[in-house]
């Protein structure tokens, strides 16, 4: 598949369109429907982070770029808002009783659980980039 890119304004109302875009690319890359769902959800969480935390309600651009690399489908989400430090996010306690749950950190938790690799990079020129890699398991 050719790499392709979607640029949207920083608004949660674009999440549904982003999900469709990521899923289309994942199907082209040959991912199973289960894998498509997983990478779509991870990308949704990454974009939500950009919109809610990096831009924090301010105007800005979120770029989503998808491509296939070997047997991997790669989604890179770029924003130019506040840099994100994944180490500052608490790890949710998935064993605690619900009445004692703190409800932060779920988005990052899902990103890490649902794809095979997540990388964060911040650069004043390149912006903040989250790169999600999902391996294709099906044989063709």
């Amino acid at each position: 598949m050719r790499p392709y890119e979607l640029c949207v304004e920083s608004s949660l109302s674009h999440l549904a369109a982003i999900a469709e875009f990521v899923a289309d690319g994942a199907r082209q890359a040959g991912l199973s429907e289960e894998e498509v769902f997983a990478v779509q959800m991870a990308a949704d969480e990454a974009c939500t982070n950009s919109i809610e935390h990096a831009y924090g309600g301010q105007e800005g651009e979120v770029r989503i770029c998808c491509w296939a690399e070997g047997n991997e489908y790669v989604v890179r989400i770029t924003d130019f808002g506040r840099p994100f430090d994944p180490d500052s996010v608490p790890i949710p306690d998935t064993k605690a009783p619900l009445t004692e749950r703190n409800i932060g950190g779920l988005g990052l938790f899902f990103m890490r659980e649902l794809v095979d690799q997540v990388d964060f990079a911040s650069d004043p020129i390149q912006g903040n980039q989250v790169t999600l890699r999902k391996r294709r398991h099906a044989e063709f």
Binding site: Q40, D44, T48, L98, T99, I103, G107, F109
Partner: peptide
């Protein structure tokens, strides 16, 4: 079709509040 972390937070919040 889709239930992301924000929806899960709402679910946990409602569960906690109903219990409490």
């Amino acid at each position: 079709e889709f239930f992301g972390s924000a929806a899960i937070r709402v679910l946990i919040m409602a569960y906690k509040e109903c219990r409490a």
